[in-house]
Simulated scan of single mutants.
Amino acid sequence: MQDRAEETRRAVLQAAAHLFFERGYAATSISDISERSGRTSGAIYFHYTNKEQLALAVVEAHFATWPALVAHHAAAPESTLRKLVRLSFAVARAFRDDVLVRAGARLWAERRSIAVQMPPPFVDWIATVEGMLTQARAEGDLAPHAEPGRDAPTLVAAFFGLHTLSDALDERVLIEDRLTDLWLLLLPGLQADPAPQALLAEVSGRATGRDDGHHGDRIHRAAGPHRPASRPGVISG
């Protein structure tokens, strides 16, 4: 019985995420979610009370994605600066490919139209990045003029600002290319011995032009302007 209830919750959450991402909060009804999930409206209300609580559950699932991802990369046997860069690419792919992450970001952008308190974005990311920069300093990899407490908010702002731009211009198809370009700009100011091309080649292969199997490889850059996305570009952490 418990397994069936959990299966229902997951099915409803996934269906809601798809619809919230595709249509937005206001244009999605419980009836739509019922039809998409194959569950009755009564079953949805039993688990989530109302549409506001279901939207909150999607946003909370978005935020719940990050701790395990951070822990996975933190455990890697490599320098912390490489871990930070590698983590940024993993997060970028989640924002591009994971519907719960993308739906959570859209719902957070629409939070003023949803009568529920949303968790605050970015705070945990700033703390995570500051901790990783501090560790990179202890490892001797951080430039003397870099300051973790000062630079972490700037890095987080640059990263999520890049997502806003990429969402607006090409719906994040080229996010890995754009992120590579961002790190090529930032790493010379962060590394004690600047070698951004080498670090990026080790982390993702993108700085060398090698196709690593992800979307948006440099050889696929479009020559002209992209169709603007119909979805809001604000990103939640």
Score class of each variant (00 low, 15 high):
residue 171 E to V: 11
residue 138 A to E: 13
residue 124 D to H: 09
residue 182 L to G: 10
residue 143 A to K: 00
residue 83 K to S: 14
residue 138 A to P: 13
residue 122 F to T: 05
residue 110 E to T: 08
residue 78 E to A: 12
residue 114 I to D: 07
residue 94 A to G: 09
residue 99 V to S: 00
residue 132 M to S: 11
residue 178 R to G: 08
residue 122 F to E: 00
residue 121 P to D: 09
residue 188 P to Q: 09
residue 135 Q to Y: 04
residue 208 T to H: 03
residue 147 E to W: 11
residue 125 W to Q: 06
residue 131 G to C: 07
residue 202 E to L: 12
residue 95 F to G: 04
residue 93 R to Y: 02
residue 158 A to P: 02
residue 121 P to L: 01
residue 186 L to F: 11
residue 196 P to M: 06
residue 180 T to C: 09
residue 190 L to Y: 03
residue 204 S to C: 10
residue 198 A to P: 05
residue 207 A to W: 06
residue 155 L to E: 04
residue 194 P to E: 12
residue 136 A to L: 06
residue 156 V to F: 01
residue 150 R to Y: 11
residue 141 D to W: 15
residue 210 R to F: 14
residue 161 G to I: 03
residue 204 S to I: 03
residue 103 A to S: 09
residue 151 D to Y: 03
residue 116 V to K: 10
residue 190 L to M: 01
residue 188 P to A: 03
residue 95 F to V: 04
residue 84 L to F: 11
residue 191 Q to N: 02
residue 204 S to E: 00
residue 73 H to D: 06
residue 157 A to Q: 05
residue 130 E to R: 04
residue 81 L to E: 10
residue 128 T to K: 00
residue 124 D to T: 05
residue 83 K to P: 14
residue 147 E to L: 11
residue 138 A to R: 14
residue 114 I to V: 12
residue 77 P to H: 08
residue 157 A to V: 12
residue 210 R to E: 15
residue 176 E to Y: 14
residue 196 P to I: 02
residue 190 L to E: 01
residue 205 G to R: 07
residue 143 A to W: 02
residue 81 L to Q: 10
residue 134 T to L: 01
residue 177 D to G: 13
residue 145 H to K: 06
residue 106 R to Y: 03
residue 89 F to K: 00
residue 185 L to P: 12
residue 107 L to G: 01
residue 101 V to I: 13
residue 166 S to Y: 02
residue 161 G to V: 02
residue 211 D to I: 14
residue 126 I to S: 11
residue 119 P to N: 02
residue 125 W to C: 00
residue 192 A to I: 04
residue 183 W to T: 05
residue 147 E to F: 13
residue 100 L to W: 10
residue 174 L to G: 08
residue 99 V to F: 05
residue 173 V to F: 09
residue 185 L to I: 12
residue 150 R to M: 14
residue 180 T to F: 01
residue 187 L to T: 02
residue 140 G to N: 02
residue 188 P to W: 06
residue 93 R to C: 08
residue 180 T to I: 10
residue 212 D to R: 05
residue 195 A to Q: 12
residue 176 E to T: 15
residue 204 S to F: 07
residue 124 D to E: 14
residue 194 P to G: 13
residue 153 P to I: 12
residue 111 R to M: 04
residue 165 L to Y: 15
residue 181 D to P: 13
residue 95 F to I: 05
residue 200 L to W: 08
residue 212 D to L: 04
residue 122 F to L: 01
residue 125 W to R: 07
residue 162 L to Q: 02
residue 131 G to I: 12
residue 141 D to H: 15
residue 101 V to N: 03
residue 156 V to C: 05
residue 104 G to D: 03
residue 154 T to C: 10
residue 206 R to I: 00
residue 87 L to A: 13
residue 145 H to I: 15
residue 84 L to E: 03
residue 96 R to M: 08
residue 140 G to K: 04
residue 187 L to V: 09
residue 106 R to K: 07
residue 179 L to Y: 08
residue 185 L to H: 14
residue 153 P to T: 11
residue 162 L to V: 09
residue 120 P to Q: 11
residue 191 Q to G: 03
residue 164 T to L: 08
residue 134 T to K: 00
residue 192 A to W: 11
residue 203 V to G: 11
